[in-house]
Design a binder for these strands. Structure first.
Lengths: 111, 111
DNA sequence: GCGATAGATCGACGGATGTCAATACGTTAG
DNA sequence: CTAACGTATTGACATCCGTCGATCTATCGC
């Protein structure tokens, strides 16, 4: 059973949704990831972070056009879904994408 | 402006979320697609349809373990998101995936 | 220590979502 | 025509979600 851990998003056997019906566990795991990308604001935040190769929240609030608590909420959702990770640097938090998680979702849509 | 049509999901210039910050239009479009995949039941339905190369609703209700109206609701959500399409054949509806839409979402996560 | 700044948390609100029982609709079999 | 069957729709309910103002926490410069 290797490093099987029910609570961690990362260690699911990576396979496509297209080749055979996926199990409930796998579906739940992937659904969490897609849910994080299912909001336009969050998708833009993710895109901004990814395109810039990392960004702090202070650089996101103004271009996204939402309140600071809203941005904080969305970054938390993205982080909880495992799509981004935040490094605290002094007063700032530097967000960056988690390539493995992104790849897992991309692979799920690939045959 | 070519075949620009605001209401159709298909004709967005296809590009990745990762290379540069995406526009609000594009974000809304992709978010709708990901939202359709953001539910475990729906993801399993989609997976069953994709893996089988098509399926009718009657073959989905029992394995998915949900009521018939719930399955009907989810197939409608997937269809509205452009991920599947249904061909009515007599009493049955044959659902099949829409490869272009799937590719659009996959490409958005690819650098 | 003090004020300023970046970020997180809380509480509230309206709106969307997943689910099912009941029912309606359309089609095929007899 | 009628009965049975596959599917869609409706209505109701509980829950979740996006948003913001207000507030709290932590860190930096002075």
């Amino acid at each position: 059973m290797a490093t099987r851990s029910a609570s961690l998003p990362m260690d699911l056997e990576c396979c496509s949704v297209l080749v055979e019906p996926i199990a409930e566990d796998h579906a739940a795991e992937l659904a969490k990831g897609f849910a994080a990308l299912a909001d336009p604001v969050r998708l833009r935040l993710f895109s901004m972070i990814a395109a810039a190769g990392g960004a702090c929240s202070c650089d996101l609030v103004e271009p996204i056009g939402k309140s600071q608590p809203t941005v904080s909420h969305h970054t938390k959702v993205l982080a909880d879904a495992g799509l981004i990770t935040g490094e605290k640097a002094g007063r700032w938090v530097n967000w960056s994408v988690v390539p493995e998680r992104l790849e897992q979702l991309r692979a799920a849509l690939t045959s």
